[in-house]
Design a protein around this nucleic acid. Sequence first.
DNA 1: TTTTAGAATAACGTATACGATCATATCAGC
DNA 2: GCTGATATGATCGTATACGTTATTCTAAAA
Lengths: 223, 223
Amino acid sequence: MTLGLQDVPDLGAAPSTSQVVLRHLRAAIVSGDLAEGAPIGQDDVARRFNVSKIPVREALKQLEAEGFVTFLRNRGAVVASLSEPEIAQVFEVRAMLEAQAIKLAVPLMTPEHLARAEAAAAVFAAEPDVSQWAARNWEFHSALYAPAGRDFLMGLIRQINDRVARFLRVQLTVSGGHFHAVTEHHEILSACRQCKAELAATLTHDHIMGACRSLSIHLPRKD
Amino acid sequence: MTLGLQDVPDLGAAPSTSQVVLRHLRAAIVSGDLAEGAPIGQDDVARRFNVSKIPVREALKQLEAEGFVTFLRNRGAVVASLSEPEIAQVFEVRAMLEAQAIKLAVPLMTPEHLARAEAAAAVFAAEPDVSQWAARNWEFHSALYAPAGRDFLMGLIRQINDRVARFLRVQLTVSGGHFHAVTEHHEILSACRQCKAELAATLTHDHIMGACRSLSIHLPRKD
DNA sequence: TTTTAGAATAACGTATACGATCATATCAGC
DNA sequence: GCTGATATGATCGTATACGTTATTCTAAAA
């Protein structure tokens, strides 16, 4: 007999110290707890986690590779910042990738997929906590693309979304961004229901580029 | 007087030890010197570079984040391997991104840009050294996309190309892959000369997906 | 008062060292 | 002779420690 292998806790999956630190730091950056440009002291982080500096440095190096932090020679790491044109470029790529993802997903959507996406849209629309909007938004979007079964593409989209999560947050909060998103989500869902892949792709593309434009209007508080 | 400040070597630009190790290891993986699944001993690498293990581990962590190596708990790092469906997905994203890149680039191409791309194509076509084909191929492709001025997109494309460089190499060497590539490069260039952005995008997309199909035929030597 | 030189302090980058874990080889038992 | 347990060796993961670099504070001179 198989000993109930599905219940066995996966040994060897115990996260290493550097992975724990990595997850926490990334979450703090994505959520905006650590502001753009904020210095991340190694000894400081090490003390907080009660570990040595080595796991902290390893986590920071991974975050550097992911584009979340920038190392300044002999001056430590800071939360990476994006200039306004860089943000625009990221959104452009987002629009491109997510449009393609939904185009691939629509023909493969089952009623269950649609139901999950609709539920996610409802949760996003009804979310009262502003600080949770970005996360709920991602849950909806990922539910839309999941049916495509493109793990690599999904990972890429996820990572790019994380990169601009801080700005997504502000976009959703300014000038009815959340409201606009809700209506556009409904339009996208409608297209999915009718199996109109191209339309869904176009709507998704415009949805994202619209958010980008909204950002470029409200963000440039550059002093 | 300025003491010839233009000749002063820029201190502070001196790469850290971990960066040196990172570059060498990545180059070794991309070039195929380190085979898929090859273990990368930390002490071994540290001895070769005459440094301690810490910079080596930091370099490996960055390579892990970039997808080039995989850490096995308490068993060290190995060169990451891609399954055949994973390769197909990477090529799919490549096709998507590079088609979009050239579509954005064509309207902005100057005669100088075209000349550079044509020169790169000629160098690729005339390259006698098989081991240099992948590098020459990238030089041509990047010359095509550069006019778009999309740094973020270019970086993404570059990284994804590096991920599959090992397979690109085999694709170019099997069954006239290099010859096919040369003729398709000429077709793409021709479309660019005529400012047909959509056509160039389609050709680029097919160029990459064709390589993917060629790979899926010749690669599956899975035992 | 402003500016600059110098020293002290804090943080970073790396080396060395040690406990923990896994692979391999040897040996006892069936 | 083969299976299983144990011991040994090697490697990994992390902590501690040290030299180096940047920053800041102070003091002196313009």
